[in-house]
Amino acid sequence: MCWVGDSTVHSLLRQQKILALLKLHGVVSVGRLARAVRASEMTVRRDLAVLGERGLVRRLHGGAVLELGKTEESHFSNSRQQHVEEKEVIAKEAAALVSPGSVVALGAGTTTWHVARALAPRTDLTFITNSTNIALELDRGQSNIILTGGHFRTPADALVGPPSLWTLERLQIDILFLGANGIDLKAGYTTPILAEAETNAAMIRKASRVVVVADHSKFGRVTLATFAPIGAAQVLVTDAASPRSMLARIRRCGVQVMVAGRAPR
């Protein structure tokens, strides 16, 4: 019989707890993980190295993030329940960027859905979106809403493909809000869906101002398809838990980084 020692069992339990914390919070520092699992930072770094070798986590400077498959995406109804407080704060900050009388485009996603909720009471705007969920949220009988049309797909409930691209090529956008499944300095803004990357890129081409809205869990992740390099956005709005070192490097790319709840730098 093969026996598993107590130290091995403790290591496995600790690593399971680390994975659960990363799934819940996104990017988590080594210090925070150490406090949560009641272990030294050196022990946590060893655990992260083991989990990294198994392809379960990605190491960042001073912390880690859960390594999801490059083609994985949660359904809209599930994603909408994650990091709700952060998304609401981000949305409030982002909505304040919209000038009166603007043509506002919103890409599909749960953070952009929160931006739509924040903007819905306004009666002076025209909205363009490829998201049925966002169109329904905006439809309070007071706004002009243009739904791009296109092939309907899950899990993000986005409209994509030639009909969507045909419509977007004929429209002009003052300000565009896009989410991202991953933000990486080298890979840029990414999505696991090729067709959605194409639609996002088309929106960017037609927008005078591009604002990326993303909570801290998206940083350090890379999914299948890049739809824009980091510098393609004029503004990035995020929450206070995002990795500061990465935000500093994004600023050096010429992007205005707004941390919701803090004064912009």
Rank of each mutant, 00 (worst) to 15 (best):
H25M: 15
G26M: 12
V27Y: 15
V28F: 07
V28T: 08
S29M: 10
S29D: 14
G31W: 12
G31S: 14
A34N: 12
R35T: 12
A36Q: 12
A36N: 09
V37Q: 07
V37D: 07
R38Q: 09
R38G: 00
R38K: 11
R38E: 10
A39T: 06
S40M: 00
S40P: 05
E41D: 06
E41I: 05
E41P: 02
T43S: 14
T43R: 11
V44I: 12
R45T: 10
R45F: 10
R45E: 12
R45G: 09
R45S: 07
D47F: 02
D47S: 05
L48K: 06
L48V: 03
L48I: 02
L48W: 03
A49E: 13
A49H: 09
V50S: 06
V50G: 02
G52Y: 04
G55M: 01
G55S: 05
L56Y: 00
L56D: 00
V57C: 04
V57W: 01
V57A: 04
R58W: 05
R59E: 14
R59C: 13
L60Q: 03
G62L: 02
G62T: 00
G63W: 04
G63L: 02
G63T: 13
A64E: 07
A64S: 15
A64T: 07
A64R: 03
V65K: 06
L66S: 13
L66P: 06
E67Q: 15
L68Q: 09
L68G: 09
G69I: 08
K70I: 13
K70E: 15
K70S: 14
